[in-house]
Simulated assay, not measured.
Amino acid sequence: MPFFKEIIIDGCARVLLWKIEEDFNVLFRAVSLKDVSLARLEGMKSESHQKGFICVRMLLQHCGYTDFDLYYDELGKPHLNDGTHISISHSFDFSAIVLSDANIGLDIEQIKEKVLRIAPRFMDVSHLENLSEAEQMRKATVVWGVKEAVFKLKNEVGISFPEHIFEDQFQLTDKEGTAQLHFNNTIEQYSFFFEEVENYMLVCVKELFS
């Protein structure tokens, strides 16, 4: 199953997902890669990571771009040559990209029990009170995704998940919320959107301007 789903956020951002089910060779033959991308692909030890990398390029092709339209800055943040903002994520069975006219961050994570064991390291665990274990796993995965997406959007060295990124209270039924980045003596406001896709949590973050 190739292209999986498109989600429009606030009419200004397109999230696209690819469910990775194809054989590596089938995927590899379906994309054109520039030399630097080919070298990066060959350096990956895991076939799962290789497939995720290629499926990001499949999503680009679905939108009318190619690998030759994509480049990374010195901190590893992706950009498109035409100025459209892009964020990229992949996790096991899914690759995802978001395209927007404004700076934006994206993360997709598999919902796993491990997130509860590490939750005290990255979030305020009071957010998990009065929830079943399954709900705690889902909510903690949303919070992790919010912090990953803010980190990708801001793209600055030194940002700490527990010390600098704070999410406001939200309910799983909301499918959205707000968060702040306290960094370099400034406070920046963000909105986030989340959606459960099979056993994964997709999170998209954009900056709020006053």
Rank of each mutant, 00 (worst) to 15 (best):
E42W: 00
I7Y: 14
E196H: 13
V203F: 06
V98G: 00
G177P: 09
C63G: 02
E167C: 13
V203I: 08
S210R: 09
N25M: 12
D93T: 01
D10S: 15
D174T: 00
S132C: 06
K45H: 13
I97Q: 12
D101M: 01
I108L: 03
K19S: 09
L208W: 03
K139H: 11
D23V: 06
R138M: 08
G76D: 10
N81A: 13
M58C: 14
T141Q: 13
G76W: 12
E113L: 03
V31M: 05
K45C: 06
A30Y: 03
F183H: 09
I97A: 10
C55A: 15
F68T: 11
G43Y: 02
F209Q: 14
S46G: 03
V146S: 06
V36Y: 14
G83M: 04
C55G: 05
S46V: 02
F194L: 10
N130D: 13
A140S: 08
V125C: 15
F24A: 09
E148K: 02
L16A: 12
S89H: 10
K34C: 01
A39P: 00
F209R: 15
V125R: 02
L27M: 10
S37K: 14
H182S: 13
L59M: 10
D82M: 01
P78S: 07
V36M: 08
F192N: 08
H62W: 07
F92D: 11
S48E: 15
R14S: 11
K154W: 11
Q180G: 00
E176V: 01
S100E: 00
T178W: 15
E109Y: 01
I9Y: 13
G158K: 02
A149T: 03
G64E: 10
E176C: 09
V56S: 01
S89W: 04
E6F: 06
L202E: 05
